[in-house]
Each structure stands twice: as C-alpha cells, then as structure tokens.
C-alpha cells in the first residue's frame, strides 16, 4: 500500500495521498474483521453440522442433539443471568460513585482498580472461584437453602462443596463488572452539564439530578454496557469449567450438587477426550452459542436504536 516514494516530500497535494493510505488501511481493517467473522462461522458450520446427526450414545446422557444443546443453552443463559443480576446493580453503583459522588482524589483510584479487574485472566478467576470462593459460600448457600428454600432457586439441598451455579454466577459477575462499570461510567460522565444544571437549579438533590438528567441520557449506553457484559458472561469458559462439575440438566436450583453446564465450559471440559463424533457435536454446540450471542447483540442494538430514535424526536 505504501510506496518507496513516500519519503520524498511531494509538493502536489500530500494530504490526499495520506488520506488515501489511511482510508485504505481503515477499509482493509474493516474487511479483515468481517472476513474473520465469516471464516469462524464457516468453520463452525462445516465442522458442526455433522454433529447434529450422530449416534445416540454421543449425546450421553441424552439421545439426540436438540435436547442436548437445549440444556446446555439453558445452563449458559441461566449462569449469565445470575451474573447479570448480581453485577449490574453493583456496576451502576460503582459507575455513579466514580462519576458523580466520589471526591476527585478517590474517583480516579477506584476507577483504576475496577479497570484492573478486567486484566485478571479468567483462569485465575476460575481457580479463585473453585478454591477460595466456593468453600466460603458453603455456609451462605446452606442458609439460603434453609430459609429461602420455598423459592425454587434455593430449593437445595445445599451443596457441601459450594461448587454450584450460584458460585459460578458470582465469579462471572465479578468478571463482567469492569466492562459494565467502565462503559456506564463514561456515559454518566458525558451527561451534558446543561441538563445537570437544569435539574439542580430546580432544586434537585444529587440523586434527583441523577434520575432527571443522568439516567435518561445514559439509558441506551447502559443497555449497551449490560449487553456487552451479557455477551462476555455467555461465552466465558474457564471460570465456569473450573467451578462447576456440571451435567446437562435443566434446573432452577442454584445451590444443589446437580448443576446445569454451560456450552463453553462443556466444550472446554469434554474437548480433550472427545471422539471425532463427539467433537463435531461440541462444535455444533459452539455454533449454537455463536448464533445465540449474535442474536442477543442484535436485539440489544435494536433496543438501543429504538430508544435513541424516541429521544431524538
């Protein structure tokens, strides 16, 4: 793309050539990402579609593909939703604290520490969840099973190892916290001063000002942030694989020994000893996860676009 003539300062419009080079670079970067995505999709489709029709024993403990992937998908969504329910309030609270409540000396370090969380490798979170967090949560889960057992989520009997989908959800929550916090913090901080002052001048307290000016402005950004967090939680592998000893079951019980597996963790834990037939089944589940994540992102964009259209009118 660049030529050897580039070093010679040319008089006739230098900016145009720079523009062309940059436009070319940007365009090829865009095309490469599309091509990569297409290549992943084609790989998953070619390798995975045979996995839909394999001998029944490949799908053990089930006997055909759809129930198999259905249960895994349930586990994936369930664990991700637990993570979201835990992470979103925390993330929004932290983001608001950093952008609107904390004194400046405190805001920067807190923001920095939260960003650091994103730099911890997921396998470390997995180990920590399995070795450190799970034993700590045993008593909490026992308490939940005892006192809130009437809610299906806490039906119990509580696991004695603590390695449950609830624990996995907590670990996932910590993992998606930084991205949700970082994005919503940026959006909160961009709230137009004009709108904040409009609320304050009417005699709004700080919280009322946030409700009047910050949240409406940030709504679509919050949805994007949550969706990105959800995408991360759906695809997360090691943290879940290390925490859960899972099986493809459908249960809302979050604290018992039988835990639903997620697609990604199932692939990770079955991959090593998989036969070719099993492998194609695993890849097919990967294709389902790919399509599902895609659909979630699409839905999120649609939600955001619609709310933006509504406000801009």
């Amino acid at each position: 793309m660049t030529t050897t003539h580039e070093t010679e300062p040319e008089v006739s419009p230098p900016s145009q050539r720079g523009d062309r080079i940059f436009a070319g670079l940007a365009k090829s970067a865009g095309l490469v990402i599309l091509a990569a995505l297409a290549a992943v999709f084609i790989f998953l489709a070619v390798e995975g579609i045979p996995g839909v029709n394999q001998p029944a024993e490949t799908y053990a403990p089930l006997s055909s593909f759809l129930p198999y992937v259905g249960r895994l998908l349930f586990g994936t969504v369930f664990a991700a939703l637990i993570a979201l329910v835990i992470a979103v309030p925390f993330a929004l609270g932290i983001a608001l604290f950093i952008s609107h409540y904390a004194p400046r000396v405190l805001a920067a370090p807190v923001a920095y520490v939260v960003d650091l969380l994103a730099a911890v490798p997921s396998v470390v979170f997995g180990l920590w969840g399995a070795r450190a967090l799970a034993p700590q949560l045993v008593s909490v889960q026992a308490w939940l099973g005892e006192h809130l057992g009437f809610i299906p989520f806490f039906a119990g009997p509580a696991s004695v190892t603590g390695k449950t989908v609830l624990t996995a959800g907590v670990v996932l929550a910590i993992m998606i916290l930084p991205i949700i916090t970082a994005i919503s913090r940026e959006i909160f901080a961009q709230t137009p001063r004009l709108h904040e002052e409009a609320a304050l001048a009417l005699g709004a307290t700080r919280w009322e000002m946030i409700r009047y000016a910050v949240f409406p402005y940030a709504r679509s950004g919050i949805v994007s942030a949550v969706m990105l967090g959800l995408g991360r939680a759906l695809g997360e592998t090691m943290a879940v694989a290390l925490v859960l000893s899972a099986s493809p079951v459908v249960t809302l019980n979050m604290i018992s020994n039988t835990n639903p597996a997620t697609i990604a963790s199932n692939i990770a834990s079955s991959f090593a000893e998989a036969t070719p037939a099993k492998l194609s089944v695993l890849i097919a589940t990967g294709l389902v996860l790919f399509a599902f994540t895609f659909a979630v992102n699409f839905a999120a964009r649609a939600v955001v676009a619609r709310s933006e259209r509504k406000f801009s009118r």
Partner: peptide, 10 residues
C-alpha cells in the same frame, strides 16, 4: 440558562 435546556426525554 443561556442555552435552552428542557429535559430531553420528557
């Protein structure tokens, strides 16, 4: 204020 600032979502 100097610039009109109605709440945009209301």
């Amino acid at each position: 204020f100097q610039r009109p600032n109605p709440f945009p979502t209301m």
